[in-house]
Simulated scan of single mutants.
Amino acid sequence: MTNLELDTVTVTQQGAVATLTLNRPDARNACNAQMCRDLLTATDQLGRDDSVHVVLVRGAGKAFCAGMDIKENKSLSSSDMLGRRALGFSAYAAIERLPQAVIAVVHGPSFGGGCEIAAACDFVLASAEATFCYPEVGWGTVGATQRLPRLAGTRMAKELLFTGRVFDAAEAKEIGLVNHVYQPDMLDAAVAGMAQKIAAAQPLTVRLTKRCLDQGVETTREGAMAIELLAIDENLRQTNWKDALAGFGNAGAPKGAPTTGSQS
Rank of each mutant, 00 (worst) to 15 (best):
E5H: 15
V11W: 00
A16H: 09
V17F: 07
V17L: 05
D26V: 11
A27W: 08
N29M: 11
D50W: 01
H53C: 03
A66W: 08
A66M: 13
A66E: 07
G67S: 00
L76Y: 11
D80F: 03
G88K: 09
A94F: 06
R97E: 11
Q100S: 01
A104S: 12
G108P: 00
P109V: 08
F111V: 10
G113Q: 12
G114T: 08
A118W: 08
A120V: 01
A126Y: 08
A126R: 13
A126H: 10
S127F: 15
T131D: 02
G140C: 11
T145Q: 13
T145F: 15
G153F: 15
A157S: 14
E159A: 09
E159K: 13
L160M: 12
L160V: 11
L160G: 03
G176P: 04
H180N: 10
Q183L: 15
P184I: 09
A192T: 14
G193V: 04
V206K: 09
V206N: 07
V217S: 14
E218N: 14
T219W: 12
I227S: 06
I232T: 06
I232C: 00
D233P: 00
N235L: 09
R237K: 09
T239W: 07
T239V: 03
W241P: 00
K242C: 04
A244E: 11
A251K: 12
T260H: 13
